[in-house]
Every structure is written in structure tokens, then in C-alpha cells.
């Protein structure tokens, strides 16, 4: 839908630019004409480019986008495994928006986090096309508690667990990881064994 909008706007801008190119001589002779050229050359194309970038950032945060690279396939499959791994539970119980499941757990939540996440994504792209992914793939930095706390921080169910309050300060400083106790995140073993949960159609 958004992509369709961007494409239509681009086609319109291209048509306009061609017309302006043809009429440049006459238009540049008057002030009004110069303003028309300014709109067709600066204002509209810049607005469309910005819109296109914004749509691209959203599209490139979608689960389907992450899974367009084969290196990510097992992680995508791990959304569907049977068991109590964090990723499977969050995805299957719809605790995260399924369309953005990978992104909400893996983006950088700090300031300008989206930009930094995209830049680090650029690195995945370079490795994908020009390098070789390590096997197994590893996180560039250990998983930050802030990403879990972004959703859980002051939620009642989280706060009502004693140990969470006891270790709150340590966890805020990343000296103790959520994953120390909540162990399995992506259950790749279950993926290799083909242990998937199947919703039963009724």
C-alpha cells in the first residue's frame, strides 16, 4: 500500500520533470516560471524521496524482509518451533507484532537507534553478498537487557517476580543478563529436528 503510493508519486514527479525539461527555457524567463521549476525540481522530489526513505525503513524492518536472506532462515523457522523458547512464545502467542517480530527484539532502542540498526544491517548485507557468514552466527555484542526491558520494564507481571526486583540494579547495568535465567532464545536444535508447532484448523 505505502509502496504503491511512493511509486505513483515517483511516476508523477518523473512526468513533471520531463515536462519542465522541455519547457525550461520559457519557464526560466519569468519569476512564476522559476517557482514552478523550484517545485518540480526541489520541493516535490525531495518530499517524495523522504517519503520513499521512510517507507523503505519500515519495509526493511519487516520479518519477511529479514528472512529474505538464507542466513536468517533457521532463525525464522525458530519462530514456529514447539516449546517454550522465548522467540517461539513471543511469536506464537502474539506478544510481539508478528510483522516486526525480529526487529522489535533486535533493534537498538537508544537514541538514533533505528539509524544505527540500519547501519549494522548494512554490515549483514556486505557479509551476505561479499563474505561468508560465520557458522554459527553470533551477535556483534552481547544481547542488551534494554531490549527486553523496553517492553517489560515497569509491567506488573515482571515486577511481581521477586528476583527481578532483587537484581534490578545489576540488570539495568547489564551485569546480569535476562538470558542468564531465561535461557533459550532461538531454539535451533528443535529447528534441526523439525519439531514445529502447528495450529490446528477448526
Amino acid at each position: 500500500m505505502n509502496t504503491v503510493f511512493v511509486i505513483s508519486a515517483l511516476v508523477l514527479c518523473i512526468g513533471l520533470a520531463v515536462l519542465l525539461l522541455a519547457g525550461a527555457e520559457r519557464l526560466m524567463a519569468s519569476t512564476a516560471g522559476k517557482l514552478v521549476v523550484l517545485a518540480g525540481i526541489g520541493v516535490l522530489p525531495l518530499a517524495v524521496s523522504t517519503g520513499g526513505l521512510a517507507v523503505g525503513v519500515v519495509n526493511s524492518s519487516q520479518t519477511s524482509f529479514c528472512l529474505s536472506c538464507h542466513e536468517m532462515t533457521p532463525y525464522g523457522q525458530s519462530l514456529f518451533v514447539d516449546g517454550d523458547s522465548l522467540v517461539a512464545v513471543h511469536f506464537q502467542d502474539r506478544l510481539v507484532d508478528r510483522d516486526f517480530a525480529c526487529y522489535v527484539c533486535h533493534k537498538d532502542y537508544a537514541m538514533f537507534g533505528d539509524v544505527r540498526t540500519k547501519l549494522s544491517g548494512l554490515n549483514h548485507l556486505l557479509v551476505h553478498y561479499f563474505g561468508e557468514a560465520p557458522d554459527p552466527i553470533e551477535l556483534y555484542a552481547s544481547y542488551p537487557n534494554a531490549n527486553c526491558l523496553h517492553c517489560h520494564d515497569d509491567s506488573r507481571r515482571y515486577l511481581e517476580v521477586d528476583v527481578h526486583r532483587r537484581f534490578a540494579a545489576e540488570m539495568a547495568r547489564d551485569e546480569r543478563s535476562c538470558l542468564d535465567c531465561h535461557r533459550s532464545s532461538h531454539d535451533l536444535e528443535a529447528v534441526h529436528e523439525g519439531l514445529f508447532w502447528q495450529a490446528v484448523a477448526r
Partner: peptide, 9 residues
């Protein structure tokens, strides 16, 4: 500008 828009399209 036109070239840029075509690349974007």
C-alpha cells in the same frame, strides 16, 4: 533530479 527519480522508481 530526473536520474535520481528514475533510480528510485
Amino acid at each position: 533530479c530526473l536520474a535520481g527519480l528514475l533510480v528510485q522508481l
